[in-house]
């Protein structure tokens, strides 16, 4: 049986790049690949983390998955059903199943609606329900996200940052979404509020058996929240695997560098920059220009190698090559 709730294969998103400011983008002009054949699968009830720095394509990925960008030629399968971005009903199906919580709670909540109406937006076929039923559903969602009922009549401007993110969450769970996409949900919050939201997310996941796609640049949060992690670098997944394995034994030089640079109380050693980081390479391995362990094969694009259930896009883990060099 196929227990993958979401499958993404060869997702490529490219944007047209304007070369001059006052020129319109024409099809003949340069394009930039923001996501370069991304593939991943998410199981029911799993938290899948995507970690990456600025420009890695994290947000583009999130936007594509809720049908804001509709690239051609990729395969997205949700609950076993193929999604065709050209068909309106398919995009709607995608949105019905995937809810999204954005980084910026101010921009994602309509300032002129009350919290009640905002949560109502997330309720599908609300027209078929009686007023009483709607009210029950909304109060239930508010209770689940631990938002006091007295806040339902407030406007977003009257809420704190943490409360706004709770409203965003309530809007996604009221419609019974199976997957919630969290795009940096806690980055704009104070640390103690972040911790509250993380606790809430874990609680919700257990109660509602939903899956999360957790996008963030914060390694501590990823490590704490996710079952599986993929490391995104300028549109490519460089390493993907079980969280524990990935953090304990980072294989890709980029992952290792990220984990080394991470701030935590346990890391007492002082960080020193061992090498300069360069621009992402256009040819061969994309991390080539910043990599400390660069060697000759890196001029070709590495495929993904599977080591201990972690897939690594790095020539260092090419078993065949290693063997042939030894012999």
């Amino acid at each position: 049986m196929n227990d993958n709730i979401l499958e993404v294969e060869n997702l490529t998103v490219q944007f047209k790049v304007k070369t001059k400011i006052f020129q319109r983008a024409r099809s003949t002009e340069k394009t930039k690949k923001v996501l370069d054949s991304i593939s991943f699968r998410i199981k029911q009830g799993e938290t899948f983390g995507i970690v990456g720095e600025t420009g890695s394509g994290k947000t583009t990925l999130a936007r594509t998955l809720v049908g804001i960008y509709r690239p051609k030629g990729c395969k997205i399968r949700i609950n076993g059903k193929d999604i065709d971005f050209r068909k309106r009903e398919d995009v709607l199906l995608l949105r019905k199943n995937i809810g999204i919580v954005f980084q910026d709670p101010v921009g994602s909540l309509n300032p002129r609606l009350t919290v009640y109406d905002i949560i109502l937006e997330g309720l599908p076929n609300a027209k078929k329900l009686s007023k009483q039923e709607i009210k029950e559903k909304i109060t239930e969602a508010a209770n689940l996200v631990e938002l006091p009922e007295s806040k339902l009549e407030s406007y977003p401007a009257e809420l704190s940052g943490g409360e706004k993110q709770r409203v965003s969450l309530a809007r996604t769970i009221v419609g019974g979404k199976e997957i919630i996409l969290l795009d940096e949900p806690t980055s704009s919050l104070d640390v103690s509020i972040q911790a509250q939201i993380l606790n809430l997310l874990i609680k919700l996941k257990q109660e509602l058996s939903i899956s999360y796609i957790f996008i963030t640049h914060d390694l501590n949060v990823i490590k704490y929240m996710c079952d599986r992690v993929s490391v995104l670098y300028y549109g490519q997944i460089l390493e993907e695997g079980d969280t524990f394995e990935l953090f304990e034994h980072p294989r890709h030089p980029y992952t290792a560098e990220l984990i080394r640079a991470n701030f935590s109380f346990s890391s007492t050693e002082t960080y020193s920059a061992t090498h300069e980081s360069g621009e992402p390479s256009r040819e061969g391995c994309i991390y080539k220009n910043s990599c400390p362990s660069r060697f000759s094969p890196c001029d070709q694009v590495p495929p993904s190698f599977l080591v201990n259930n972690v897939s690594v896009k790095c020539w260092l883990y090419d078993q065949a090559k290693i063997k042939s060099e030894r012999s």
């Binding site: 640390v191 509020i193 911790a195 704490y224």
Partner: peptide
């Protein structure tokens, strides 16, 4: 403040923070 920064993996239990905000 110290407990708010997640340190371990998922199995390390909930973060010890109280409710409320500054």
């Amino acid at each position: 403040l110290k407990n708010s920064v997640p340190e371990g993996f998922l199995n390390s239990g909930p973060l010890k923070v109280s409710s409320g905000s500054p």
